[in-house]
């Protein structure tokens, strides 16, 4: 099978010195191998080693307390593991399970092919039980995004979308670096492959729905 464009792009990113993604450190090994671990586990020699790229899905599924992680870019990746992979192809599969979809979005951004969707457009598109989410007020949306998407405890993605088509900032409660792809959202200050967010996730849409429903109930 030929090398896919994404694998080539990943190889280039590594060659350019981007050895971190989210909470993961990627370490080059001999014979084209890579070793991955939690960035805060650097130097530990008691890590449990794995070799299957698909193991990443299992590692990413629960946090250290055993709680399910519905948002894989939340800053609560489990620690204590080490994943040794044979090739860039395996690395790509593993990273896609740790941070699903982020690599493709990053490659699209690097190729100037990433289009971001404003939050209002995402909400207006919803049908069924999520249709009501579009009713969220400006102030409520500002607060919701400010809390839900914050890198400190919320989500490590770099927000690329705006709140509306006029370019309103997603939330005035978030610092400017939350929108800067060069910034390491973990706060560790390293050069990273950013976890770019081109459109509000379903979890945020669900929270917007809850916010509207809560307000409706309060208004009754």
């Amino acid at each position: 099978m030929s090398s896919l464009a994404q694998e080539v792009a990943l190889g280039k990113s590594l060659a350019a010195g981007l050895w971190c993604i989210g909470q993961i450190a990627i370490e080059p090994q001999e014979n084209g191998r890579f070793a991955l671990n939690h960035r805060e586990d650097a130097g530990r020699n008691d890590l449990i080693a794995h070799t299957q790229p698909e193991k990443a899905a299992e590692i990413a599924r629960f946090d250290d307390a055993g709680k399910y992680r519905p948002l894989k870019t939340a800053p609560n990746l489990r620690r204590g593991w080490r994943l040794v992979l044979e090739s860039v192809a395996e690395l790509r599969v593993a990273l896609d399970l740790f941070y699903p979809g982020r690599l493709d979005v990053f490659v699209a951004w690097e190729n100037n092919a990433l289009s971001a969707t404003p939050l209002r457009e995402t909400l207006a598109r919803q049908t069924g039980m999520y249709r009501v989410a579009a009713k969220i007020g400006e102030e409520e949306a500002n607060t919701l995004v400010g809390n839900f998407c914050a890198s400190d405890g919320g989500c490590l993605r770099t927000i690329m979308w705006r709140r509306d088509e006029n370019g309103t900032t997603p939330s005035t409660l978030l610092p400017a670096e939350k929108f800067d792809p060069r910034y390491d959202q973990t706060g560790l200050g390293e050069t990273v492959i950013p976890l770019l967010c081109q459109e509000a996730c379903n979890l945020l849409v669900a929270e917007a729905r809850k916010s509207v429903q809560g307000q409706d109930r309060r208004g009754q």
Binding site: A5, G101, D104, V105, N111, T117, N202
Partner: peptide, 18 residues
């Protein structure tokens, strides 16, 4: 629909020209 990658993320998949 309710997990990552989202269906919207998938719009950026398969960009290999082949």
């Amino acid at each position: 629909w309710k997990e990552e990658p989202s269906l919207r993320d998938a719009l950026f998949f398969f960009r290999d020209p082949g």
